[in-house]
Simulated assay, not measured.
Amino acid sequence: MARQRPTDGPSTPATVALDRAGIGYTRHPYEHAASAQRYGLEAAAALGVDPAHVFKTLLVDTGTGLGVGVVPVDGQLDLKAMASALGVKAVTMADPAAAERSTGYVVGGISPLGQKRALPTVLDDTAYTLERVYVSGGRRGFDVGLSPVDLARLTRAVRAPIGRRVS
């Protein structure tokens, strides 16, 4: 894919990071409903994309710091698998306020890209079966599409099976 500098949607720390790295990506703004409870599924529906291609960014607390798990929006984060991927005994979901402080984003718009502090990141291995994945662009109502390899490279993500399908 030719490197492009998309102009649709807002400029965020995530898009700035992508532009600086010279990574080709697409911008996907959509109308966010304030009443939405499941932001990732809302994004998939608004973009007309299979939910297995849209990934959510979840922060975990390792007891000594935070980590980032990136999994499909139609599944859940397997906390035991996440702990194993990070090389720690156990993890819990991070406090939302701590996640916002650490990343510089608000819950529902946390991007794995352009966070205030680089955190250990794990990308679910299902992403690598796809040509393109969609992640938050740093705001509710805004996703970016890019290669999972580029996502992993920019976030220095480890590849591991951390997602669990929900029936």
Score class of each variant (00 low, 15 high):
Arg139Tyr: 09
Ala127Thr: 04
Leu66Cys: 02
Thr15Arg: 15
Pro161Ala: 10
Val158Gly: 08
Thr62Trp: 12
Ala118Ser: 13
Ala2Cys: 15
Leu146Lys: 07
Gly40Phe: 04
Asp61Arg: 13
Leu18Val: 02
Val49Pro: 06
Arg164Gly: 14
Met1Cys: 12
Val68Cys: 01
Lys89Asn: 14
Ala97Pro: 02
Val106Ile: 14
Lys89Pro: 09
Val149Arg: 12
Gly114Gln: 09
Arg164Tyr: 08
Leu154Ser: 06
Leu123Ile: 03
Ser102Val: 14
Leu77Phe: 02
Lys80Leu: 07
Gly24Glu: 14
Ile162Pro: 08
Val91Thr: 08
Thr62Pro: 12
Ser84Leu: 07
Gly108Pro: 13
Thr15Asn: 10
Ala21Lys: 02
Gly67Arg: 05
Thr57Arg: 00
Leu86Asn: 08
Val107Thr: 09
Lys116Ser: 15
Leu58Met: 13
Tyr25Arg: 00
Leu119Tyr: 03
Ala46Met: 11
Gly145Trp: 12
Leu18Ser: 03
Val135Lys: 04
Gly109Tyr: 12
Gln76Ala: 14
Ala44Glu: 03
Pro13Phe: 07
Phe142Ser: 03
Leu77Met: 04
Gly24Leu: 00
Gly87Ser: 11
Arg165Gly: 10
Ala81Arg: 14
Thr126Val: 14
Val60Ala: 15
Leu154Tyr: 05
Asp150Asn: 07
Leu123Thr: 00
Gly67Cys: 10
Tyr105Phe: 06
Pro148Trp: 10
Pro72His: 04
Leu154Arg: 06
Ala85Tyr: 03
Thr7Pro: 05
Asp8Cys: 07
Arg38Lys: 09
Ala118Lys: 11
Phe55Lys: 05
Ala14Lys: 10
Ala98Phe: 10
Thr15Phe: 09
Gly63Leu: 12
Thr62His: 11
Glu100Lys: 07
Ala157Phe: 00
Glu31Gly: 01
Ala43Val: 06
Val49Arg: 09
Gly145Asn: 08
Thr64Glu: 15
Ala83Asp: 00
Gly75Arg: 05
Ala45Trp: 14
Asp78Trp: 01
Val68Gln: 00
Ala90Lys: 15
Pro161Asn: 05
Ser136Arg: 07
Lys89Asp: 15
Thr64Pro: 06
Gly108Phe: 12
Arg159Asp: 11
Arg164Trp: 11
Val60Glu: 08
Asp143Cys: 09
Ile23Met: 02
Val54Pro: 00
Ala14Leu: 13
Pro120Trp: 04
Pro96Glu: 11
Lys80Trp: 06
Ala44Tyr: 03
Thr121Trp: 00
Asp124Cys: 05
Arg165Glu: 14
Leu123Trp: 01
Gly137Arg: 00
Arg5Glu: 12
Arg132Leu: 12
Leu58Phe: 02
Pro6Ile: 01
Thr26Gly: 12
Gly63Phe: 10
Ala90Phe: 09
Thr126Gln: 10
Val158Arg: 15
Glu31Thr: 11
Glu42Phe: 07
Arg165Phe: 05
Asp125Trp: 07
Thr64Phe: 07
Asp78Glu: 06
Arg117Ile: 15
Arg164His: 14
His32Ala: 11
Leu154Lys: 05
Val91Phe: 08
Ala34Cys: 04
Ala21Phe: 02
Thr57Pro: 02
Ala36His: 06
Thr92Asp: 13
Ala33Ile: 03
Ala43Ser: 08
Arg156Asp: 15
Thr7Arg: 14
His28Leu: 02
Lys56Ala: 02
Val149Phe: 08
Leu18Asp: 01
Gln37Trp: 07
Lys80Glu: 04
Phe55Tyr: 15
Leu86His: 08
Ala90Tyr: 11
Val70Glu: 03
Leu86Glu: 06
Leu41Gly: 01
Ser11Val: 14
Val54Asn: 00
